[in-house]
Design a protein around this nucleic acid. Structure first.
Lengths: 193, 193
DNA sequence: CGCGACGTTGATTTGCCTCAACGATTGTGG
DNA sequence: CCACAATCGTTGAGGCAAATCAACGTCGCG
């Protein structure tokens, strides 16, 4: 059951009664995305939190020269969103699309507010989820300041051993903040020790 | 009153009754730091959240070559901590010290847990605080990938118009992830249009 | 006063980018 | 099922942003 995946994810952080589980799943919207399909487009106001059941999403922005910069990937069992737009209600500058065929659950913001009221434990859930995000972001900021491109690539492979085999190299380069050509050279160098 | 500064900060996000305010302030520990004094040293387990009443803290790591990288500044009305160590209970890799004479409130982790129990609204408070952190981190990650050093410096001045005049240039360079020499050159260039 | 921390400036080096060309693979329409 | 296009990864030449190294002037402070 798809609902079990998301319930497991939630219950990893907070305990729910059967009644709460039942209530929670009523707020979920299931959606399938084809490879390449856009979930949130540029300038759109982000009104949902997304949970990936299977597949992989990417969350990226486009700079003034038209270059893409991937902020995060979201594979199975991950949450994603454009939190800035979601919080402020202003148009977002991030795009979310599917790198492969993907299944997700969506929760609308107004439903999320209801959930906070009806099951206050979810405040805690999100606090914990966000704490975790901050730790990851911190690690990323740190490595972008102190590590070379090669070191960052090695760290990426360690952190996402599944993702890096399944998606095009250019996306990894975009996530690492380097050019695809240069990543190719790094890879070649690593292969020859 | 110093307590008013922190209560204002909290009430900016959640409403508290007088009883709750009274209870909350009993958990606060006041502390004064001299310029250069270390609040959290390398390898220490971070057991507190820190709130700056006046002055300025910096939160930084040291890489394998001995170079410092500033993760964040915390000036008046800001919270800081080593969230990774705080959450996991493992030794931290960040150092927090005072850039100028500084006054803070500290809240111990075990007291924070009590506060969550006694005033559940604080779960919400921290969720909101952390959401905000994520938005800031996201902005920083994005700009480190798509903006030049000069652009980042300009953005820094805009974002922290007070801080940048009061602390040594080398700290700003460290925050921006560039060398002090290069920042000096950027500054010079800007001064001549 | 003299020392250490800081900011500046110039010369040189380097990590990574851009551009361009080329095979290999994948996808698509006829 | 083939032909062609599009996408992708690789490789090399040349360029640029920023680092490193070194020397020097200034200032605050013990």
């Amino acid at each position: 059951m798809k609902e079990e995946v998301i319930l497991n994810n939630v219950e990893h952080r907070i305990k729910l009664t059967d009644a709460e589980k039942k209530l929670f799943v009523t707020y979920l919207t299931y959606k399938q995305l084809k490879k390449g399909e856009v979930l949130l487009s540029y300038g759109e106001i982000c009104k949902h939190q997304y949970f990936v059941i299977s597949g992989c999403l990417r969350n990226y922005s486009i700079d003034e020269y038209g270059k893409e910069h991937i902020l995060m990937f979201a594979a199975t069992d991950w949450w994603t969103s454009d939190l800035y737009s979601y919080i402020t209600g202003e148009p977002g500058e991030y795009i979310i699309d599917a790198l492969v065929d993907t299944e997700i659950f969506m929760i609308a913001k107004e439903d999320m507010e209801k959930i906070y009221e009806e099951i206050p434990k979810f405040e805690r859930f999100h606090r914990l989820l966000f704490q975790n995000s901050i730790v990851n972001n911190t690690r990323r900021i740190r490595s972008s300041m102190s590590a070379s491109a090669e070191e960052r690539y090695q760290a990426f492979i360690k952190q996402f051993p599944n993702i890096y085999k399944e998606i095009p190299l250019k996306h990894i380069a975009s996530y690492l903040g380097i050019s695809p050509e240069f990543l190719s050279k790094i890879r070649n160098k690593i292969a020859h020790y």
